[in-house]
């Protein structure tokens, strides 16, 4: 479904992404791991069009998407959440998700119809699904950090994506929030059949939910394979798992 072929992007002299390869097939959960500054977030930015690669190809459903603007890529079926909370702070929880749904339905240019309550059924069902239904009328600025991260995912779901990209979905969450978030990601995969690509710091968590793992070091792909293959790989052990052994 998604294929990244030797993507390269440098800032000045620094190669943030340096020959990254990645393959995601429909229906699976793939994780990208790697030490801090390995280029995980940058790679996601390349996939979602927030940055364009200097070279290499990014294919989604067989079509080249590298270099397209983010909104076009979103319409092709990729939604994402951000590492740092990135929502519409002055809008309510409901409206946050509603915008994503309206955008998918191409209704954002309607200037004379009443937006209130539009797409309410779908928005409500998404909010129920992620557990934010009770807080739907709260200004999203006022939510707890954990709830805001969940809202991130809910906004991404509003685009009814085929591929959902989550950039450190549990970053900064309390343990019980993390627990809840993992259950949510699992359920999204199992019940909605979503294809999910995510990156995460917490290795334990990665092995818990990912079917396959891609390991990134210094901008390049070390290996992509099943959890077992990754665990056995020497290079990974020395370059990454060894370093952070404890967690």
């Amino acid at each position: 479904m998604l294929r990244v072929e030797s993507a390269v992007l440098s800032f000045g002299g620094f190669r943030a992404v340096n020959g990254a390869n990645l393959e995601v097939t429909a229906g699976e959960i793939v994780a990208v791991i790697g030490p801090n500054g390995a280029g995980k977030t940058t790679l996601f930015h390349l996939i979602t069009g927030h940055l364009s690669p200097d070279s290499g190809r990014i294919l989604f459903k067989g079509r080249e998407i590298s270099g397209l603007p983010p909104h076009v890529i979103c319409r092709r079926g990729i939604s994402r959440s951000f590492q740092v909370v990135n929502i519409f702070p002055r809008l309510t929880v409901f409206e946050n998700v509603q915008i994503a749904v309206l955008s998918r339905e191409r209704r954002t240019f309607r200037i004379f119809s009443e937006v209130k309550g539009m797409e309410a059924d779908e928005v409500h069902s998404i909010l129920r699904n992620v557990g934010l239904y009770d807080r739907r009328d709260a200004e999203s600025d006022l939510l707890s950090h954990g709830d805001q991260k969940v809202l991130e995912i809910a906004v991404a779901l509003g685009g009814k994506p085929e591929l959902l990209i989550l950039d450190e979905p549990t970053a900064g969450m309390a343990p019980e929030e993390t627990e809840r978030c993992i259950r949510l990601i699992r359920r999204l995969s199992e019940e909605l059949g979503l294809t999910i690509l995510f990156c995460e710091h917490d290795i334990g968590l990665v092995f818990e939910i990912a079917k396959r793992i891609m390991v990134m070091v210094r901008g390049g792909t070390v290996i992509q394979g099943s959890c077992e293959e990754v665990r056995r790989n020497r290079e990974v052990q020395s370059a990454y798992l060894g370093e952070t052994g404890g967690c």
């Binding site: 979602t48 927030h50 603007p69 983010p70 909104h71 979103c74 319409r75 939604s79 994402r80 951000f82 990135n86 929502i87 519409f88 702070p89 002055r90 809008l91 409206e95 946050n96 915008i99 994503a100 955008s103 998918r104 906004v155 991404a156 509003g158 685009g159």
Partner: peptide, 14 residues
């Protein structure tokens, strides 16, 4: 209003 609050996010939802 969404664009005002967060243009990056707006683009990311299409």
């Amino acid at each position: 209003e969404g664009i005002r609050d967060n243009p990056v996010r707006s683009a990311a939802v299409g």
